[in-house]
Amino acid sequence: MSKYWVNKFLYQIDRDPELLERYRTSPRAMVETWEQSIGPTMTSVEISTVNSFTPEEREALINQDYVALFEMGAHFFLNLTLFIAVFEEEYTARSGPLAFQLEFGRKLSHWLGREYPSVAL
């Protein structure tokens, strides 16, 4: 498991409008490209060789499965912000303001009253 790597994916996609659009429309291709070339690039010279996704993490990112990511301990702020960017417009057009955020909460309701998966690395 690499929570760090999952968080880095969420962080880098969220802060770049071009990557965000690619992830919104072609998540599998974006995850594969990120794993191969974007994630490991530390600088134009330095490459990181020590991180990788587990199959479960990769699938959760490809499926844009924010419930699974929450359960793996992805950071709540990154997990919320990126998926608002991916889904909010469509939900708002269909069901009004905050529709996505409320559904996100509802899908995690089985965690009410329990200790959440830790975001600590």
Binding site: F70, F76, L80, Q101, F104, G105, S109, W111, L112
Partner: peptide
């Protein structure tokens, strides 16, 4: 609460 079941209540 952000990104959890109690958000945006």
């Amino acid at each position: 609460e952000l990104g959890g079941p109690r958000q945006f209540g």
